[in-house]
Simulated scan of single mutants.
Amino acid sequence: MGSAASVATVGLNAALAAEQARRADKKADASADRQIAALSTQNAQAEAERATRLRAAMATARARAGAAGVGGSGGSTDAILKGMTEQAEADARAEQAALRERARDIRSSSGSGRSNLLEVTSTALQGSAGRSSRSSRSLLEI
């Protein structure tokens, strides 16, 4: 009867350790989600500011071309505006890639403490075996 109680204690300890590990993993995931959401918000704000600056720069380029007598559209003015737009798009793509990389880093660092169920169970079993008077016996022997 004593061995059945020991097995039940070991099982309970393993289940409690696994549940504690799941809670810790959920907390880490929630923290990572908050960090990624904050990065996304910052990125959206930066993108809106870049778009505003691009529109202002393009308007300035058109005005300068018009003031120089070249005209606000056509030829070299269009080439300049196209170059500005392409540069802004390349910058946005680079920023998106950096954001994805940071999100991946956050996810991997939050998952680095993730508990393996086998490790949790093994630790719980070792802890229970240390408290038992029959610590040299395995569960299969009981």
Rank of each mutant, 00 (worst) to 15 (best):
Ala30Arg: 08
Ala28Pro: 03
Gln42Cys: 02
Ile80Asp: 08
Met84Arg: 01
Ala63Val: 03
Glu19Asn: 10
Ala17Met: 05
Thr60Asp: 10
Glu19Pro: 05
Arg23Asn: 13
Lys27Val: 09
Ala21Gly: 02
Ile80Gly: 07
Gln45Glu: 10
Ala14Val: 10
Arg34Glu: 13
Ala97Cys: 00
Thr85Cys: 04
Lys26Met: 07
Ala68Asn: 09
Ala90Asn: 09
Thr85Trp: 10
Arg55Gly: 05
Gly11Trp: 06
Arg62Tyr: 10
Ala46Met: 00
Ala56Asp: 12
Ala8Tyr: 06
Arg93Phe: 02
Ile80Phe: 06
Lys26Glu: 12
Ala67His: 08
Ala61Cys: 03
Ala15Cys: 07
Glu89Lys: 14
Glu47Thr: 14
Ala68Ile: 10
Ala48Gln: 08
Asp91Pro: 01
Ile80Met: 15
Ala17Glu: 06
Arg62Pro: 04
Val10Ser: 09
Ala57Asn: 07
Ala17Pro: 03
Leu81Lys: 00
Asp91Ala: 07
Ala90Phe: 05
Arg22Thr: 07
Ala48Phe: 01
Ala63Gln: 15
Gln20Cys: 02
Ala32Lys: 03
Glu49Gln: 11
Lys27Asn: 12
Thr85Phe: 11
Gln35Phe: 03
Ala94Asn: 00
Arg64Trp: 06
Asp78Ala: 02
Gln45Thr: 13
Arg64Lys: 15
Ala97Trp: 03
Ala65Met: 11
Asp78Pro: 01
Gln96Glu: 14
Thr9Ser: 14
Gln87His: 13
Leu54Trp: 08
Thr77Asn: 08
Ser40Gln: 15
Glu89Met: 08
Gln20Arg: 14
Gly66Ser: 15
Asp25His: 05
Ala88Phe: 03
Thr52Phe: 04
Glu89Val: 11
Glu19Phe: 13
Leu16Asp: 03
Ala44Lys: 07
Gly11His: 09
Gln20Val: 07
Gln20Phe: 06
Gly75Phe: 03
Ala92His: 11
Gln96Gly: 05
Ala24Lys: 15
Arg62Leu: 07
Thr77Arg: 02
Glu95Val: 08
Gly83Ile: 04
Ser31Pro: 04
Thr52Met: 09
Ala24Ile: 02
Gln20Ile: 05
Leu16Ala: 04
Thr52Lys: 15
Thr41Trp: 02
Leu39Lys: 01
Ala59Val: 07
Lys27Gln: 12
Ser31Thr: 14
Ala65His: 14
Ala46Phe: 04
Glu19Ser: 09
Ser76Asn: 10
Asp78Leu: 06
Ala61Lys: 04
Ala57Lys: 05
Leu12Asp: 10
Ala32Val: 01
Ala37Asn: 06
Arg22Cys: 00
Ala63Phe: 05
Thr60Asn: 02
Met58Val: 02
Glu47Pro: 02
Arg34Gly: 13
Gly11Pro: 11
Leu81Tyr: 12
Gly71Ser: 00
Val10Thr: 14
Ala97Arg: 05
Ala17Trp: 06
Gly11Cys: 12
Ala67Arg: 12
Ala32Glu: 01
Thr9His: 13
Ala46Leu: 10
Gly72Asn: 08
Ala65Thr: 08
Ala14Thr: 12
